[in-house]
Design a protein around this nucleic acid. Sequence first.
DNA 1: TCTGGAAGTTACAGACCGGTAACACCCTAG
DNA 2: CTAGGGTGTTACCGGTCTGTAACTTCCAGA
Lengths: 193, 193
Amino acid sequence: MTDGVVERSRPRDRILETAQDMFHKHGIKGVGVDAITEAAGTNKMTLYRHFESKDELIIECLRATAAKTARIWDEFEARHPGDKLAQLHAWVQKASEMLSADCRGCDMANAAVELSETDHPARRVIKELKEAQREKLVALCRDAGVGQAELLADTLSLLLEGARVSMQSVGAEGPSAQFVRMAEGLIASFRSR
Amino acid sequence: MTDGVVERSRPRDRILETAQDMFHKHGIKGVGVDAITEAAGTNKMTLYRHFESKDELIIECLRATAAKTARIWDEFEARHPGDKLAQLHAWVQKASEMLSADCRGCDMANAAVELSETDHPARRVIKELKEAQREKLVALCRDAGVGQAELLADTLSLLLEGARVSMQSVGAEGPSAQFVRMAEGLIASFRSR
DNA sequence: TCTGGAAGTTACAGACCGGTAACACCCTAG
DNA sequence: CTAGGGTGTTACCGGTCTGTAACTTCCAGA
């Protein structure tokens, strides 16, 4: 008697999921609320009953994306329980998989680029979420027994961030193609120190 | 009798310079042609007499920015003639200086993020210009006597690209603060191999 | 069966967008 | 002095954007 899990979920969930997808593919300023609601099989009034503005919707989308990323980290722990070094290698592997041909980069970084107004409400959220992710990676490096865990984590961060944006300018055959080699080389280098 | 160099330059030049500045600060989709022409002290008709469309103006702006970057490279050669290793260190130094507090990142990378349409005419130009810059850095690394010059150049590329985008999400106190240490460490590591 | 709230529909406001037409102006080269 | 090209001005087109109003429909729970 209950509706289908995906197709017939509640309008709010459909809007959120559709908006995430469309913001990711076409950029925030490249998608209007009309297009989102239509793709979500609903209408504009319903959107504005659940989200007080487009900015609020953007923020909720970023939070949802961050939550998805957090679930991937749980997967690392589940697959390699207690083995932090293995989890770090899994992180590299997972990161490289995100560098597929049609990669559109990190939603939060892209949003920061698009929303250039320094007082945009989404900026605070982006900073918070990114800082949380940074701390997680630092903790992983430290628990993996690497010296200078902060430096390794930050270097890996920048490499991935760079790879994701580089893909969008020069494509998958550019510098980002060497991401795994760079990251593994770095980890090895930091561990032997 | 000739006009002042900056204030009274020709409309086309003023438009180009103003557009570069405004695109950089507010993003491409965040600036309309009206705002550009007004800031340039001219009007929309004059803009469209010199550029056939906004897209064309965007492309000319990207070319102009790339030309400015090329001039910085000439500076390296002028300051350290023949000493490619010193030029590589100068590149790191210059790159770190671009990571100031209000850094808005690389115009080409930002444009690639904003212009998500895969067939946008600016995308070809971005790819060409970025590939040219990559080849320059590879050549510099090779001429500096570094083994695996391509890998070092690509790693430095990704680090810088990542630092410039990271600044916009988490600010200057984030991972990008360690850019110089990372880059110099990499260069030393590659040279001692 | 009745009721109340969630959702859909249509229309609209007000602003901004890229781009064009028509015309007046000024300054310089001949 | 004059002709003409570059420039400025104003008005406009059709479209899109976020956000709202007023109304209808539907459906679940009492």
